[in-house]
Amino acid sequence: MTQTVHDQPSATQPSGAIAARAIGAVKVYGEGAATVRALDGVSLQFPEGEFTAIMGPSGSGKSTLLHCLAGLDELTEGRTFIGEVDLTTLKDKELTLLRREKIGFIFQAFNLIPTLNANENITLPQAIAGTKPDSEWYEQVIETLGLADRLRHRPSELSGGQQQRVAAARALVARPEIVFADEPSGNLDSKSGSELLGFMRMAVTDLKQTIVMVTHNPLDAAYADRVVFLADGRAVDEMHGPTAERVLDHLKKMEG
């Protein structure tokens, strides 16, 4: 039933290597009669340097897929890879180190540690590892995200948009192999939201970052190179070079 939409070529050319993939991913919650198959055999690839949006109605499994891809949750069946590393073979500690070194996160909210200032939040994964970020790269990310004059502020002194940009900066400064974003603009007004998405787009275009984002907002999805549609735990569709209107249309079609 998978049907690919080919009406427009991809905006960017992936370099060919695969940053992350899922093979036959199955996630089952609960037992007996209450069993829910959140993921029902999803196989997907996320090429390096591509910005992928995952969309689908509530309960379609998009957040679960993101969590399993990012090593935050365990699959019931199937496998997920970051680069060539099979996450399903890793122990908690190895997973933790993998997250620290190879993955960046942007969550919908509660992205920052309130006791640390913006700068400390941005460099948190390096501080946890006991290393220092690449200072040139750091400057570039801060510059790109326009955070230079906010670095000494604590989260409570930043606007919602600024907080999410700090979170984005944290995700990028580590130069992870892949960034996972879970409804990053979910708590923002539309102006701050589009600003953030603009920055994320820039990170992919200019900084060659790979991003996988879960969203339910067609406007956000339009910033991506590719949109993957999930329904009932399965990847049902894919759209390259999306626009907000086409995504919306497609969603309507799916629901109808």
Partner: peptide
């Protein structure tokens, strides 16, 4: 949430 975040960005249990 804070602890969850720390775990997510790479803080080990230890």
């Amino acid at each position: 949430r804070e602890i969850g975040l720390l775990r997510a960005v790479g803080m080990t249990r230890r």
